[in-house]
């Protein structure tokens, strides 16, 4: 083996290692170009702050790779069920600390069998009698959604992660030049979800939900001058997961004089 061969092997090994660390998760890692994998629905977030779209929808989000939580039906998502499910902090500090793009975290997940996509029209695999849990490494991704509704399902499929039976965690930062009073957080999600503004619960969408623009709204809130942190959790069994979120003022107009970032 000559020097060139050794160098080539070393280079390939480094690239493989690099790709593994970038997309580590519940499934065995393989090289995925994030921008390429999500290109139909997302682009990587830039360093420049974003603004809401023309209807006020916030499209820049930090998304954590889906946390496997098998559910064969979405009819179980009662208020108490999702409150309990979302009260379980996936890793220490997640509820209180804004994650960063590319941050890897270790999360306890419930294992589920892979979905069979080819055999006609298969149903969700039957869950084992006793749930099996394991530690998994998941990654946060800072992304700009190409659509007003953030397609969590395509986020999952693009990264080859759990597409059904999952909890999705989301963060974004809203920056205001001054206090904006009497606004409401307006959310739609598929399926159930909960949303917090600066650590305070703002909106809950329980039940077997469809993604409907302005499905639920918070009470009147104040977006304070400076940084406001929004956190959301979305849970789904079978079906397509997504959400949309915007702020609406007292006149029913979308709030657009804000800046959006992931930092």
């Amino acid at each position: 083996m000559n020097t060139r061969s050794i160098l080539r092997i070393a280079l390939v090994s480094a690239l493989v290692l690099l790709s593994c660390t970038a997309v580590s998760g519940q499934k065995k890692n393989k090289k995925i170009d994030i921008a390429e994998a999500l290109s139909g629905y997302f682009t990587p977030a830039t360093d420049e702050p974003a603004t809401p779209d023309t209807k006020g929808f916030i499209r820049r989000w930090l998304l954590l790779e889906p946390i496997s939580k098998p559910n064969r039906s979405n009819t179980v998502f009662t208020d108490s069920y999702i409150r309990e499910a979302f009260a379980n902090e996936p890793y220490e500090g997640m509820f209180t600390t804004l994650p960063t793009d590319g941050q890897k975290v270790k999360v306890m997940i419930e294992k589920q069998a892979p979905v069979n996509l080819t055999a006609g029209r298969p149903m969700m695999p039957t869950a084992p009698a006793e749930p099996v849990f394991e530690k998994a490494t998941l990654v946060w991704h800072a992304l700009d959604s190409k659509l007003f509704n953030v397609k969590l399902f395509r986020f999952a499929t693009g990264l080859d992660k759990e597409r059904y039976g999952a909890i999705f965690e989301a963060y974004t930062v809203v920056e205001c030049d001054e206090d904006i009073e009497n606004v409401r957080m307006a959310v739609g999600s598929n399926s159930a979800s909960m949303w917090w503004l600066n650590g305070e619960e703002a909106v809950i969408l329980s039940g077997d939900r469809r993604m409907v623009m302005d499905d639920c709204m918070s009470k009147r809130l104040t977006l304070k001058k400076g940084r406001n942190i929004i956190r959301g959790s979305v849970i789904n069994g079978p079906g397509m997961s997504d959400f949309c979120l915007r702020f609406i003022d007292e006149a029913g107009k979308p709030v657009r004089n804000i800046k959006i970032s992931c930092k």
């Binding site: 064969r72 979905v115 069979n116 996509l117 080819t118 055999a119 006609g120 029209r121 298969p122 149903m123 969700m124 059904y164 069994g237 079978p238 079906g239």
Partner: peptide, 12 residues
């Protein structure tokens, strides 16, 4: 020609 099911494939 196919029949329902949110949890699998969606060839229809």
């Amino acid at each position: 020609a196919t029949g329902g099911g949110l949890g699998g494939g969606h060839a229809g």
